[in-house]
Design a protein around this nucleic acid. Structure first.
Length: 596
RNA sequence: GCCCCUAUAGUUUAAUGGAUAAAACGAGAGGCUUCUAUCCUUUUGAUGUGGGUUCGAUUCCUACUGGGGGCACCA
């Protein structure tokens, strides 16, 4: 296998360097940037030249002579070149053997063992219970889920989780908005007591023919507006106090309004294939956070201010600005409950590593949380990772970049974009008269998901992106649609050829037009490994685009089912490409279709 | 004011410190009697500015400029 060939070379190089006097050489063969440099190359010549006081080129030359003498398996040619690179050319047999490796592995191709024995907990997409999911939330989910898949694919134990931050003033605004504005008779009192005995005098989302999350958004917006009125503000704050006191009727109202929100959000999450192993409810553990803060105070790690608030002490050891851990009235803050939750997560899953997939505006808050947890002995900062994802901005007609703003009404909902793409795809099917109605519907939904997911996962998740809704609908070029189309092509060829994988491939050692495609197929596992290291799946997306582009070029030039002696071999190339695309898309959470 | 992130073709995005900075969209030219043209071929065009480290810098350091985010009792 190619893996063994590379490992063998790396260890030979490593041995040579050790003999030459390097204590712990770091050697790895990387993908050569261009076919003219072979399949793999290494820069050890330049890297260790100074330490060995040799010229890089001479070092490379000596090393190549040494390696050539070993006559390593699977290697056609080794050369040293200009600044001091060493290039490795694999034999055609080795490359073709790799195709069989792919076909034998099928769905397992691309799996690795990089994180075996590790236990990870990934928090992502904790829903905001007063909003329907917009593009920012969607990005959070797609990034979070792809990290979960990458780590599982790398052999780790992974739990994904979310927190329902379901207490506090904003929920109370929802509740008030509901009481005040969703009653059927405007004359009815805005009152919890009255509501509790006249519940059917209030609208449900069904009765308003509205999705429950949009219904809640409306409650929130109206409640927020009313909050400006000091009389109403008092009532809303009273709701929080009554909730804390455990008032049954207020709790009932609270549960009802929250359920609307979560039901609605889950419609979107289920659509995109979200999964959580565990949902934490803030109201179940926020009290425990106070105990941790009290413990830290007793141990002298935190400071009590004159007004009674408890503050962190992070300046000296962490260079971080301090934050309040407990309010002067003794009530908890976001960070208070997160301390308890972090400990809970670690204990529940015996987790080695915890990841928070959260927006960049939380960076400081999370660094403070990590540091405080370390001070309390809950875990080490090095084992906590904040994976941020950049903002999703919009582009207006003039091409200017703008943040989404609920105040300006420019928030784009996840479902709206999916629906728009779906409609475009569907219209195309209708036009072409392909498939029956239900098939069109099914394919259009899957393609819309593929297009939108790919659009988000093809670039580095930490970068801000600007999202052009119209461009997302225009599904050409570097897109999920392109990759899917290519996959469908491979399936179509394999289908026409008959059952794939049955005939023993004729190993044809001369490579033709497909040479660069076969070469690219070598790198999938390297790309996946890099994605695991970076916790970002975009390397896989970029790789798939390149693979598809090369496949399509070959496809345009050469007829595959030509009845020639090379046909069986060409089919193995097609099948290897097909499997690689399918497995790559699976890492992106994109389900393939066989026809379109 | 202080802290963090960020700057690549006209636009949207790639590039473990490595070789000629890679694609797509847009604009121009061409290609289906064929395994699905949602495709292919081709032309065009970029590392914000000044220093530094290095054999080698889009990548690391530094200053400046522009953009975004954050800064104690909100979440």
């Amino acid at each position: 296998m190619v893996k063994d060939i590379l490992q063998n070379l790396e260890s030979e190089i490593s041995n040579w360097l050790k003999q030459a006097g390097i204590d712990t050489p770091v050697v790895f063969l990387e993908r050569a940037v261009d076919p003219e440099f072979g399949e793999y190359s290494t820069n050890v010549g330049m890297k260790y030249a100074k330490e060995l006081s040799m010229s890089p080129l001479l070092l490379a030359e000596d090393l190549v002579t040494f390696l050539a003498d070993k006559n390593p398996y699977g290697v056609e040619k080794i050369e040293f070149v200009k600044p001091g690179f060493i290039n490795f050319y694999l034999t055609n047999e080795a490359k073709i053997e790799h195709l069989e490796t792919i076909i034998n592995a099928q769905n397992k191709y691309g799996q690795n063992t990089l994180r075996v024995g590790e236990s990870w907990v990934i928090e992502h997409t904790s829903p905001n219970p007063n909003k329907a999911m917009h593009l920012g939330h969607l990005r959070n989910n797609l990034v979070g889920m792809s990290i979960v898949r990458l780590l599982k694919n790398a052999g780790a134990e992974v739990a994904s989780d979310a927190v329902y931050n379901n207490r506090g003033i904003s929920i109370a605004k929802n509740m008030y908005g509901y009481l005040a504005h969703m009653k059927k008779n405007p004359e009815a009192p805005t009152d919890v007591e009255y509501w509790s005995t006249h519940k059917d005098e209030w609208f449900t989302p069904e009765e308003k023919n509205q999705r429950p999350d949009l219904f809640v958004t409306e409650c929130y917006v109206l409640g927020e507006k009313d909050f400006a009125n000091t009389e109403i503000e008092k009532q809303v704050r009273q709701l929080v106090v009554d909730w804390e006191a455990g008032d049954t009727k207020v709790r009932e109202l609270w549960a009802l309004v929250l359920q609307f929100a979560y039901d609605g959000i889950n419609l979107t999450l289920n659509r995109v294939g979200n999964h959580w192993d565990k949902i934490w409810y803030e109201h179940e553990h926020y009290q425990e956070g106070k105990d941790y803060v009290g413990k830290g105070l007793n141990e002298g790690k935190f400071t009590k201010l004159e007004d009674g608030a408890i503050i962190s002490n992070l300046e000296a050891d962490y260079g971080l600005s301090d934050t309040v851990l407990l309010k002067k009235d003794g009530t908890s803050l976001y960070i208070t409950q997160d301390i308890a939750l972090t400990d809970l997560k670690k204990k529940t899953y015996q987790a080695d590593k915890l990841v928070w997939v959260v927006g960049p505006d939380q960076t400081l808050a999370l660094r403070q949380l990590f540091a405080v947890c370390e001070q309390l002995g809950i875990g080490k900062v090095a084992d906590f990772t904040h994976v941020t994802y950049g903002y999703v901005g919009l582009r207006d007609e003039s091409g200017a970049y703008k943040k989404m703003s609920s105040r300006e009404g420019t928030v784009v909902l996840a479902d709206d974009v999916l629906d728009k793409v779906k409609a475009t795809v569907k219209a195309r099917f209708d036009e072409e008269g392909k498939h029956d109605e239900s098939k069109r519907e099914e394919l259009a939904e899957k393609l819309a998901l593929a297009a939108v997911k790919f659009a988000f996962l093809k670039s580095d998740s930490t970068q801000d992106v600007s999202f052009d809704v119209n461009q997302s609908v225009d599904v050409q070029g570097d897109s999920g649609m392109y990759v899917m189309y290519t996959y469908v092509r491979t399936r179509s060829i394999l289908k026409k050829a008959g059952a794939p994988g049955n005939s023993q491939p004729a190993v044809e050692v001369s490579l033709g037009e497909e040479a660069s495609l076969v070469r690219t197929l070598l790198y999938f596992e390297d790309v996946v490994a890099k994605s695991v290291d970076d916790l970002s799946v975009h390397h896989v997306s970029q790789y798939l685009l390149q693979l598809c582009s090369e496949f399509n070029s070959w496809y345009a030039k050469e007829s595959i089912l030509d009845g020639s002696s090379r046909e069986a071999y060409k089919l193995t190339v097609v099948e290897a490409v097909s499997i690689t695309i399918r497995n790559g898309l699976a890492l992106l959470g994109i389900e393939t279709i066989k026809e379109m």
